[in-house]
C-alpha cells in the first residue's frame, strides 16, 4: 500500500523523466542529426551556453504575459459580471463574443503591428485578447447558474438585484474565476510567445525564431524547454492560488472544476 502511494506521488516526476530518457536514448540509438532533433542533453548544453541571452528574453516574455494577464483579469471579470448578472446584456453580447472568440488571435497580430508597430505592445494585447475570454465565460457562468430557489429566497426577502449579486452571485462565481485563472495565464503566455515570434525583436518567442532561422536547432529546443517550464510554473502558481482561496469548492460537488476553456 505504502509503495503504491509513493508511486502515485512520484508519478509526474517518473513520467517526465522517462520522457526525456526515451528522447535521449532515441536520438543516440538512431543517430538523429542535431539539426533535425537535438537530444535533450544537447538542448541543455545550449541552454547553459546561451543562458545570459535566454533569461533576459524569458523575463521579457514573462513581464509581457503578466501585464496582458492583469488587464485580461480586470476586463474579463467586469465583462463576466455584467453578462452573468443581466440576461439582456447576455443576449445582446453573446453573438459578438462568440464571433470574437472564433477569430484565431495569430491573425490579429499583423493588424496590431500595423497599429502599434513591432515590439512589446502587440504582445501584451495578444496576451490580453486570448486570456480575457475564459475568465469572462467562467465568471458569467458562476453567476448565471445560481439555483433558482436561492434567487426566490433572496427576492422574497426584499433583496435588490445588487444584493443578490453581492451576497450570492459574486461569492458563487469565485471558484469559477480561480479555475479560469489557470487557463487564462497559460493562454496569455502562449499569446505573448506567438506575437513575439511574428512581430517582435525581443522575448523568448523571438529568440526561438531567430535561432531557427540561423539553424541553431539545439537553441530552439532550449527555448522550447524554457517555455514549457515557465508554462508549468505559472499554471502551478495559479492552481495554488485557486486551492488557497476556495477551500469550500473542493468538497461541494456540483459547482466546481468546470472551467471552460477559450
Amino acid at each position: 500500500m505504502k509503495i503504491r502511494r509513493a508511486l502515485f506521488i512520484a508519478s509526474p516526476w517518473i513520467t517526465t523523466l522517462s520522457f526525456f530518457l526515451l528522447w535521449e536514448a532515441g536520438c543516440r540509438l538512431f543517430n538523429v542529426p542535431s539539426f533535425v532533433l537535438p537530444a535533450p542533453s544537447a538542448a541543455l548544453e545550449a541552454l547553459i551556453q546561451y543562458w545570459p541571452g535566454i533569461w533576459v528574453n524569458a523575463l521579457q516574455t514573462f513581464l509581457t504575459t503578466l501585464v496582458g494577464f492583469v488587464i485580461a483579469v480586470v476586463f474579463g471579470v467586469a465583462l463576466g459580471v455584467a453578462v452573468g448578472a443581466s440576461a439582456v446584456l447576455y443576449r445582446a453580447l453573446n453573438p459578438l463574443l462568440i464571433g470574437f472568440n472564433s477569430i484565431p488571435k495569430v491573425a490579429v497580430v499583423p493588424i496590431l503591428v500595423l497599429w502599434f508597430g513591432i515590439g512589446t505592445v502587440p504582445a501584451i494585447i495578444t496576451a490580453f485578447l486570448v486570456a480575457f475570454f475564459p475568465i469572462s465565460v467562467n465568471v458569467a457562468t458562476g453567476i448565471a447558474t445560481m439555483e433558482p430557489e436561492l434567487e426566490d429566497v433572496m427576492r422574497s426577502l426584499g433583496a435588490s438585484r445588487l444584493d443578490i449579486l453581492y451576497r450570492v452571485g459574486l461569492p458563487r462565481s469565485l471558484p469559477y474565476f480561480f479555475a479560469s485563472l489557470k487557463i487564462a495565464i497559460t493562454l496569455a503566455f502562449v499569446g505573448a510567445v506567438i506575437s513575439e515570434t511574428v512581430a517582435s525583436n525581443q522575448g523568448i518567442g523571438y529568440l526561438m525564431l531567430s535561432a531557427s532561422s540561423t539553424f541553431r536547432v539545439p537553441l530552439v529546443f532550449a527555448a522550447l524547454l524554457v517555455i514549457a517550464a515557465m508554462g508549468i510554473c505559472m499554471y502551478a502558481v495559479a492552481a495554488w492560488f485557486e486551492r488557497r482561496h476556495t477551500k469550500w469548492t473542493i468538497r461541494s460537488t456540483e459547482h466546481s472544476r468546470f472551467a471552460v476553456g477559450g
Binding site: E147, E149, L150, D152, V153, R155, S156, L157, G158, V168, P171, R172, L174, T246, W248, T249, S252
Partner: peptide, 18 residues
C-alpha cells in the same frame, strides 16, 4: 410586487456552500 418579508424553504436546501 415581491413581498419583502417571506420565509421560503424548498426540497433543495439551497444553502450557501461558502
Amino acid at each position: 410586487k415581491p413581498l419583502k418579508n417571506i420565509g421560503m424553504a424548498f426540497q433543495n436546501p439551497a444553502l450557501l456552500p461558502w
